[in-house]
Each structure stands twice: as C-alpha cells, then as structure tokens.
Amino acid sequence: MRDAAIMPLHLQDVSLHLDGRAVLDRITLDLGPVGCTMVMGPNGAGKSQLFRILHGLREPDAGRIDWNGSATKDARWRQAMVFQKPVLLRRSVAANVDFVLHARRSDRTRVSALLDLVGLADKAGQPARQLSGGEQQCLALARALATDPEVLFLDEPTASLSPASVRAIETIVRGALDRGTRVIFITHDAGQARRLADDVVFLHQGRVAAHGPADTFFSNPPAGVVRKYLAGDILN
C-alpha cells in the first residue's frame, strides 16, 4: 500500500536564525496538494534557506512543519531538489543519472530517456563537470526527475539558461506537473512565474509578504514591496 501523499504542506511560525540574524521570521504558509508554487523575492530574502528547511537539509529553530501528517525527515525521500548551484558527481553525464536510479533501486534503463528529456543525450559520455553552466542545471534536473519525486523543489533552475533552454525547461516542468508532481519553484523572472505559477509566494526579509493565486498576484499585485519589486524598484 502506498503511503498517503505528503502534500498539502503546512508551515506554522517557522523561523531560522543564522549568525544571530533572522533569515526566516515566523513563516506561516499553506501549500495545496497540486500545481506549481512560484517563490519570488529579492536577493537574500530567504528563499533558498526556506527550501533547505523544507527539504530537511536544515532544522528551523522554531515553528512546525507538517507534510500532510508526516515530518520533514520522513517526507524527504519523496522530494527532489535542484540546487541553485548544482553539485555534479565526478563522473560522466550518464553516470550522474545512473547513480540516482541505482541508489533508488529504480529502472536503470531510463538513463537515455531522461537525458533525452533535458537535451543532453549527445553528451552522455562527457565528464559532467565539463558541461556549461546551463547544461549542468539541465543535468541536475534530469537527476532530480530520476527519483520520481512527489514534490520537486527548483531553486532558480533556469538562472543561467538561454531563452530557448528556459522554454525547454519550462516544458519539462509542465510535463512533470501534468503527471501530478507538485512543483515549488524559485525564480526572479516574473514572466516565468506568470507562465508557470498557480500561486505565488513573495518573501521579503524572511517574511511572507504576499501569497495568493497567480492571476490576481500579477493582475493586481499587493501594494507595497511586491508592487515595487515587480516594477523593478530596488528592495532590501
């Protein structure tokens, strides 16, 4: 019997202090069972640290996190994450994907299909670390998808990609969404957020400055920091 889904997710007053500074400040948030949540906000707002906590790489100092009744440590193996700075193994492109499939006792013949998906099939034999920055992010995405995650965290996965590659990644993300994967996605690109988001979370100085459905978020952005950010004003 399959365990119950790990979504919806509920956060209650989650805080994180680093070097005596509140990086996350009493975050309370509810994320529904399906769709794509875009997380936005200025540099240093705490987006990546929030992901680390949700993915169980860091413990919050306060607050409660509830994955549909499960704790984060029990939910992590059903999540995957593409880091802002991908860490690739010192192996070939194909071996990076194969490693994950093997570790998860998954079907290892899927390597070529996964590489095809992210457009790296012709680089399968190359040392992964010699890929370009954008290609490395594509490989990290292929590896994350190899785990068949229920929840996929993407931390600016298209930050160093050309427009064509951005669209290719977005198509892959849509495919994952269609298969029922819950996607939580950090971006600075408002156009991308508009294209993919079902709802948008806006972080500012470690707090949730806004959270709402994408259409109203963009058609009628909340006054204050969000409106300024979307207008390109400098926030800190």
């Binding site: 680390r52 790489l57 994450m81 880091f83 860490v87 193994l89 570790a103």
Partner: peptide, 11 residues
C-alpha cells in the same frame, strides 16, 4: 561538497 546533494538523494 557532496553532503547536501547526498542528503537530497536520501542515500
């Protein structure tokens, strides 16, 4: 260098 990535894979 690898620890976070390995945790992420639940190795």
């Amino acid at each position: 260098e690898y620890a976070d990535q390995f945790h992420s894979f639940s190795l």
